[in-house]
């Protein structure tokens, strides 16, 4: 069963107890993510409710740059995929180097994302699209900004994991943590799909 229960954790063969132990943090972290989902859910609802609260300020047509959004989407999707490769490397190869390499690739893709996002934000500000401008813009900044903040935290987390790999190697605890980080990283992509569909594409349709 170990193969399917946890993507990317292969403690079952070597250490059944450690595998069982990782169940609790994994489940706990899922619960945490679901709690986080409610936060995003409410911000989505707020955004939808406030779509027309523009107070004659700029709206989606003036603010959004679909090319950049498409690039950000690809980056996140690609990084989700590369994180999956890191998980598989951890599970099947049991060596630090491939895991670390995939993590670094993920981090590079991941770091480009907020880079582009910051550029978008700067453009929005140039268009007068600051959050203080209208109820709509406040909602937009809160939703997209919170996602960006999550990505930034994820990047720090990847850096910490690289350090942990260097200091502690692929210990059971490190593996479990990598697993949690994986859940987090994939989850952020799910939220992004929501933002892409509702904010960007929905706004421009």
């Amino acid at each position: 069963m170990s193969g399917t229960a946890h993507p990317g954790l292969n403690l079952g063969a070597s250490d059944a107890r450690a595998h069982e132990r990782s169940e609790t943090p994994v489940f706990g972290f899922w619960v945490f993510l679901m709690s986080d989902l409610i936060i995003f859910g409410i911000l989505f609802a707020h955004y939808i409710v406030m779509t027309d609260a523009r107070a004659f300020g700029p709206g989606p047509a003036q603010l959004f740059d679909l090319k950049s959004v498409a690039a950000q989407t690809s980056l996140l999707l690609a990084s989700s995929y590369t994180y999956g490769m890191a998980s598989l490397a951890m599970k099947h190869r049991e060596r630090i180097r491939p895991v670390a390499l995939w993590l670094i690739v993920t981090a590079i893709l991941g770091a480009t994302f907020p880079g582009l996002e910051l550029r978008d934000f700067a453009n929005m500000i140039a268009e007068g699209g600051v959050p203080q401008r209208s109820g709509y813009l406040s909602a937009l900044w809160a939703l997209v900004g919170l996602h960006g903040l999550h990505v930034a935290v994820g990047l720090v987390w990847i850096a910490v994991m690289l350090a942990l790999l260097a200091v502690r190697g692929l210990s059971n605890r490190t593996k479990t943590r990598l697993l949690l980080l994986g859940l987090y990283w994939h989850f952020l992509d799910l939220i992004w799909i929501g933002i892409l569909s509702i904010v960007y594409l929905g706004g421009l349709a």
């Binding site: 989850f187 799910l190 892409l196």
Partner: peptide, 22 residues
Amino acid sequence: ALWIVGAAGVAQIAVQLRCFLH
């Protein structure tokens, strides 16, 4: 368009839950 975007979004979430989050 909105319906299709929404459906594609939901489908993609399902795909990622299945393939990435297992």
